[in-house]
Simulated assay, not measured.
Amino acid sequence: MENLKLLTGFFQAIENDFRIGTTHIAIFAALLEFRAGKDFINPIQAYSIEIQHIAKIVSPKTYHKCIKELDSYGYILYVPTKNKNKRSSIYFHVE
């Protein structure tokens, strides 16, 4: 139920945000799907390839650009790691 609330809030927030495109939406939805598989924890710990697979995004460059934009626009908090053997943290703004 919380994921549905987050998704609904996201769609309401982006309604007039011209910066958000379909790739951003795909990533946000994939993050929620990934989170659902992890018992709705916050933050989630994920490798980019795991989210790319769910979102059907092939290019790592596109993924990183869009997830960083989602962070800078305030839709998520993205804490990347430079260590390829460690997952990045993605926080959702929950009430």
Score class of each variant (00 low, 15 high):
A29L: 14
H93N: 11
G37A: 06
T23G: 03
E50Q: 15
K38E: 09
I51D: 05
F10T: 03
E69A: 14
I44V: 11
H53E: 15
N42H: 04
L7F: 13
Q52T: 02
L6V: 06
C66Q: 15
Q52N: 06
S59Q: 12
T62W: 02
R19Q: 12
S59D: 12
I41L: 09
Y75C: 01
E69V: 04
L32N: 11
A55P: 03
I49G: 10
N85S: 12
K38H: 11
I41K: 15
K65T: 13
N42S: 06
S59I: 01
N42K: 06
F11K: 12
K5Q: 12
E69Y: 07
K82N: 13
A26T: 02
F28K: 09
D71Y: 03
G74H: 04
P43F: 01
D39T: 05
I51V: 14
K5W: 04
L32A: 03
Y78D: 09
K61C: 02
P43I: 00
I41V: 14
G21W: 00
I14Q: 07
D71C: 10
H24E: 12
I41H: 00
A26W: 01
G74I: 05
S89V: 00
E2I: 14
D39H: 12
V94M: 07
E15H: 13
G9Y: 06
P43H: 03
M1I: 10
F28D: 10
D39S: 12
I54Q: 07
A46P: 07
F40H: 10
Y47T: 08
A36S: 14
E15Y: 14
I20V: 15
S72L: 11
I49A: 14
I27V: 12
R87H: 08
H53W: 02
I76G: 08
Y63C: 03
V58W: 09
I54K: 05
T62E: 09
S72Y: 12
T8E: 15
L77Y: 05
I20E: 02
T8G: 03
M1P: 07
H93V: 03
Q52G: 04
T81I: 05
R35L: 06
L70Y: 05
L70E: 04
F11N: 13
A29D: 11
I51W: 02
I76V: 15
I90D: 03
A29Q: 15
F34C: 06
E69C: 05
A55E: 04
V58G: 14
K65F: 10
Y73S: 08
K65C: 08
F40P: 00
L4M: 11
T22F: 06
Y91C: 01
E50I: 06
G37F: 02
D17R: 07
Q52A: 10
P43L: 01
P43V: 00
F40W: 09
I54M: 05
G21P: 03
A13Q: 13
L4T: 10
Y78A: 09
E50N: 14
Y63N: 06
I14D: 02
H53N: 15
V94F: 01
I54H: 04
Q52I: 01
P60G: 08
Y47V: 09
K86W: 00
D17M: 04
I25V: 15
R19E: 11
E15Q: 14
P43G: 05
N42M: 05
I67S: 02
Y75F: 10
S59G: 08
E15C: 11
G21Y: 00
F18M: 13
I67M: 02
G9I: 01
A29H: 13
H93G: 01
Q12E: 15
L6T: 09
